[in-house]
Design a protein around this nucleic acid. Structure first.
Lengths: 249, 249
DNA sequence: TTCCTATTTGCAGTTTTTTGCAGTTTTTAT
DNA sequence: ATAAAAACTGCAAAAAACTGCAAATAGGAA
């Protein structure tokens, strides 16, 4: 049996099963395990597979793309949350929508700060339980599995009873022409109600989501009092928004 | 099985479920717990996950707090939950309180079962989001940080509007003389309201909590239609309860 | 063909890694 | 405070990897 033939067989096995064991290959090919080991080492050197103790695994096998990109964006989101914190006054009433940027805000809330937080988002509520001085009030209702927050008429109804000092809106797309948009109709209804119930509306928005729009509209840019991104307020990307009556941070 | 493969499996489990338990992994992979511990330690060193006492959690946003009480006595609680599942009929309306036994029930709910679940408990709601056919309705209100569920007048008020087929009560102490008791007054108010709103009341109770009482009373034993423990219904410990009109399972 | 050389292959001995176990220490929940 | 669960430690057996070497093989060149 030719060496090239053997290596082709090994590559094929790896691609089919995502993994191989040296002993298996040695058995089925009828060669010594050392030979297989040497073949695998060579293939590893040529970046055709990944050699591991006892065998080899496919190169694409262990990729967790979401993990890395998420960690990457997390720094931006932390940064945004940090900028948002000074807007929260002692003993104020805060309204928070869902989204990971808001989650970061909930996580970074100064422990000494006394606040009352209303939220329809399960992850946000859970995160706030860890805060020693936050009074958490959950706006109940039918839970949307995608958005992990309360939606529906009763939620909107409950929100209408609230008068908050400040509202933090996460996860949304902002565009000069289309305003604030979402791809989930039910979430739009909730956000509309939140905006109506709050004296001041702050949008936490990672710059990737600027200048893009989705199907459903939450509000015009005018309805936003403050836009916080991870960028410098003077950044070119934010230029189009400076014409509106929006505080850029 | 290759070490690399095992670690891949662990990473995948963590990524899917946000958390893992060393013993679970050891069981399902058929290796010793020490091996899993070493794997997890290595993955932690490589910043692929975060090792915690008893298991590991995902690095990303972890809304599911890894609570050690849910690995405490988990086998018994799983067993109790298994016994409770047949009581839930297709298309029924279920009311669930908090507690780790109920959490186990939520986790083990058959995926094909269509149910509407009302709950004031954040962990339960979050767990149910993973269920494909459960409609989840959260009873909102002021959140108790200890019990991780909605308490207060508005929650009681909302509960009073519900008519559920069956109610599952977790975390409580049951005693022949004192009935069902709790150490949290606010939780008692919620449970009272839940019992009133349900046609049938089922108590999921680990035997350790039998024959003990706490400060505040939820109801008499009569109010319970069915008591489920991890014991055999004929067990001596359950004898005192058989005089009441309670189905023992 | 025959001889020569470079490569490949298998083998034996040694080193390293992996894994489960037992005993001890630490952590956790009640 | 106490008892149970989990973590840590060192150890030993087993598996795998590495090393050097010699035999086998292939491919030319004479």
């Amino acid at each position: 049996m030719l060496k090239a033939e053997r290596q082709q067989y090994i590559l094929n096995e790896v691609s089919v099963h995502s993994r191989i064991q040296l002993s298996d290959i040695a058995d089925s090919l009828g060669v010594s395990i050392d030979t297989v080991r040497r073949d695998v080492k060579e293939l590893d050197d040529n970046k055709k597979l990944k050699k591991v103790h006892g065998g080899a695994i496919s190169l694409g096998y262990n990729t967790f793309p979401f993990n890395h990109s998420d960690i990457f964006n997390r720094e931006k989101k932390s940064f945004i949350a940090q900028k948002a914190i000074p807007l929260i006054k002692e003993n104020s009433v805060v309204l928070m929508s869902g989204g990971t940027t808001n989650l970061e805000l909930a996580r970074l809330l100064p422990p000494k700060l006394h606040v009352t937080v209303f939220t329809p988002s399960l992850p946000i509520a859970l995160q706030l339980l860890a805060h020693p001085n936050a009074e958490v009030i959950f706006i109940g209702g039918k839970i949307s599995k995608d958005a992990q927050l309360s939606v529906g008429a009763s939620t909107v109804q409950e929100l209408s009873q609230i008068r908050a000092d400040i509202c933090f809106l996460g996860t949304g797309y902002l565009d000069v022409n289309h305003g604030l948009t979402e791809f989930d109709y039910e979430v739009v209804q909730i956000k509309k109600a939140m905006i109506k119930s709050s004296r001041k509306n702050v949008l936490l928005c990672i710059s990737d989501k600027l200048n893009s729009a989705q199907r459903f509209k939450t509000c015009d840019i005018d309805a936003i009092d403050c836009l916080i991104t991870e960028l410098d307020p003077e950044d070119q990307i934010l230029k189009p928004f400076s014409n509106f009556d929006v505080l850029l941070k």
